[in-house]
Amino acid sequence: MSELAHHSTDYSVVESESPQVMARNLRVASQLWASATVFFFFAFLFAYFYLRSLNSQHLWHPHTVKAPVGLGTVITACVVVSALAGWYAARRLEAGDERSWRSAGIAALALGLAAVVLQIVEFWTIGFGPTEGGFASVFLGWTGLYILFVLGTMYWLETLLATSFRYRGAGAAGHEPGEASGDPGRTGDDIDRPISLVRPGAGAFAFYWAVLAVIGVATWLILYLL
């Protein structure tokens, strides 16, 4: 018989997990996901320079294809300011200022969603189609997928804000363990006090959103200005 574990052990008396574990998980996952995202867009970067250098049939970038620099700049600005607001929000939460976190978080969310809407407007009014050469292909593919990543990241921010609003003012004893999750076997601090996971979540979000904003700036430089 093993000394390390027994089938008969009641799950509910197994020691609870430290909330720091899940906080660390979120931080590490954010960094790993950022690396995967960089490699995802690396493929488009490679495509840009590869097709540009080959210029097959002289159709890389016909004169009729013009990226809308003004709108692209506004979209990038929205993303960058949103990332700054997200970073500020996470810092305020770290300092214990929940009210500022929520305000700055809402601003970051609004700006991120504005970028998504403006990207749709850009596609609607762009003046060239996917069939018009290599640049048009890279432009539409890269910006289209980038904005999907932005949308997903805004979903993440919304979940953090929603938890923050739902449990604002709730103390550590405000909820019975497992009450919210329907999981009586789990006594972790994140269940007892859901707001405790928002802080590491916000830090992880701010890091990832900053990386995505840097990719956005690179996208703007390459597709609109180069």
Binding site: F46, Y50, S56, P130, G134, V138
Partner: peptide, 15 residues
């Protein structure tokens, strides 16, 4: 109908 891999339309199959 983008042309990432279409040599005849500004893309490249080698990509």
């Amino acid at each position: 109908q983008t042309s990432f891999f279409n040599d005849q339309a500004g893309g490249s199959s080698y990509l």
